[in-house]
Amino acid sequence: MTIRECAERLQAEVVCGEEHVDRPVEAVCASDLLSDVLATDKHTFLLITGLCTPQVVRTAELMGSAGIVFVRGKYPPQEAIGMAKVHDIPLLCTRAEMFEACCLLANLGLEKHAE
């Protein structure tokens, strides 16, 4: 599974990091609580979140996340986009809600990575 395939499935707009969308995604971490994200054991995960702050990008950077999906049509602030570019983290925006986004990705076969 790649970021590109996830983006297509979620009909997501790639806000930045277009050049990294062929990167593999090994797991998904869906949370609005960064504390939970920081505590996950998953690696190379796609972070799905409704939070829209620069701290989301910082958390993803430190966790070595493959990319970030912002749900419910939320658009990341410009500071977050600037940070994501420096750390080569693709940012995606989908109109899907969190649950819907998770279901769509689960159908792609990512559910076996879920805890």
Partner: peptide, 17 residues
Amino acid sequence: MLQEVALQAEQRERDLH
């Protein structure tokens, strides 16, 4: 102008690093 905000954030992050 919004894009400039992103560029500034990008530069700031690069400078810090």
